[in-house]
Simulated scan of single mutants.
Amino acid sequence: MPARSVLMPARAVAVCLLAAALLPAQASSPDAWNAHDREVVERCLHESGLRQARALSAPAEFDDRVGYAALLIAGYLPQAHLKAQRVQMLCLFDKLSHEVYLSELLPQPNRRP
C-alpha cells in the first residue's frame, strides 16, 4: 500500500504538467502591446536627456530570447557649449528589468567605394 500512495500523487502531477504543456500559449492583448510601446518610448525619451526628443521609429521588438526592444530617437544636446547640436540615438529597452541603454549614432565619414 505505501508504494501505491506515493505513485498516485506523482502520476497526478505528471498528468497536470503534461496538460499544461499542451495548452495553447496566450498572446499579449493589443492593450498590453500598446502599454509596452508607450513605456519604451517614454523611458527612452526621458533617459536620453535630449531637448525636444522624439521617436523616429516604432519600437523594434526582438525575440524574447534576446529580451530587448530598440527605438531610434533624435533631439538636441542640452549642453550650451555644444550649441544645441542635433543627434540621433539608439535606445535599447530591457523587457525584464525595464532598464534603458543609450548610444549616440555618429555619422559615417564619407568613403569612396
Rank of each mutant, 00 (worst) to 15 (best):
M1H: 03
P2Y: 00
A3H: 15
A3S: 12
R4P: 03
S5T: 14
S5L: 12
V6G: 04
V6H: 01
M8R: 14
M8H: 01
A10Q: 08
A10P: 00
A12L: 14
C16H: 12
L17E: 09
L17N: 06
L23M: 14
A25R: 12
Q26A: 11
Q26T: 11
S28I: 04
S28L: 13
S29A: 06
P30W: 00
P30Y: 00
A32W: 06
A32E: 15
A32F: 08
H36G: 00
D37F: 13
R38G: 09
E39R: 09
E39Q: 11
V40H: 03
V40E: 03
V40W: 05
V41C: 03
V41I: 14
E42S: 14
R43E: 09
L45I: 02
H46R: 14
G49K: 05
L50P: 02
Q52N: 15
Q52M: 10
A53V: 07
A53T: 06
A53G: 09
R54C: 08
L56C: 01
A58L: 13
A60Y: 15
D64A: 13
R65E: 09
Y68G: 07
Y68S: 04
A69K: 10
A69C: 08
A70G: 09
A70H: 11
L72V: 07
L72W: 11
I73K: 02
I73A: 03
Y76Q: 10
Y76M: 08
L77W: 07
L77E: 11
L77P: 06
Q79N: 11
Q79V: 02
Q79S: 13
A80P: 14
A80M: 10
H81S: 14
H81C: 04
L82D: 04
L82Q: 05
A84R: 12
A84T: 05
Q88R: 13
Q88C: 08
Q88M: 10
M89Y: 07
M89V: 03
L90F: 05
F93Q: 01
L96G: 15
S97K: 10
H98C: 11
V100C: 04
Y101V: 11
L102E: 03
L105A: 05
L105F: 02
P109K: 01
R111L: 15
R112H: 13
